[in-house]
Simulated scan of single mutants.
Amino acid sequence: MAGFSSWLDTFVDEKGLDTDHRFDVEGPEWGWNSIPLSAVIEAAKQSASNEQAQIKSKLVEVDYRNADPMHFFEYLAKGMAK
């Protein structure tokens, strides 16, 4: 998805999210994982274009609902731990 990386960087910056924040999530093989938001962001940027579109759509929805985007990023971190 063209421009997704810069869009995501802008979103994170505008929301004032701490990219050093760590999500402590459990994975089936390695047990507990401590995954920084910056790693979740980089994984999202490396995902397939259809997945990037889904991530962007969900973040726009979260923003529209005035909800905390960190909950969605935690969901993505849990997926990374699997």
Rank of each mutant, 00 (worst) to 15 (best):
E14D: 10
N50Q: 06
R65E: 14
V60K: 11
A77W: 06
K78F: 06
K58H: 07
T10P: 01
A67G: 05
S57Q: 14
K15G: 12
V60P: 02
P36M: 10
G3V: 12
S6G: 00
S34V: 02
S34Q: 13
G79W: 11
D18I: 07
R65A: 09
D68Q: 15
S57N: 09
G31M: 11
Q54C: 04
A48V: 03
K15F: 12
D63E: 15
V62C: 05
F11P: 06
H21Q: 15
V62M: 09
Q46N: 09
H71A: 12
V12Q: 03
I41W: 09
R65Y: 05
S5N: 10
S49W: 03
A44F: 07
W32V: 14
N66Q: 15
A81L: 04
G16R: 12
I55Y: 08
F4Y: 12
K58S: 09
D68T: 09
A67L: 14
L59N: 05
G27K: 04
A48E: 03
Q46V: 00
G27I: 04
T19Q: 15
Y75H: 14
V40F: 06
H71D: 11
Q54N: 12
F72G: 04
Y75N: 07
V60I: 15
A77C: 06
N66Y: 03
F11K: 04
S6A: 15
E51K: 04
T10R: 14
A77K: 01
M80L: 15
L37C: 00
S6W: 10
I55R: 00
S5R: 13
M1F: 05
D18W: 11
A53M: 01
H71R: 14
D24K: 11
M70P: 02
A77M: 11
L76R: 13
L37M: 13
E26Y: 10
K45S: 01
N33P: 03
V12N: 02
Q46G: 02
V62F: 08
N50R: 07
I55L: 06
T10H: 10
A53L: 11
A81R: 05
Q52D: 02
E61M: 12
D20L: 10
S5M: 09
E14V: 08
Q46S: 11
E51P: 01
Y75A: 07
E51S: 05
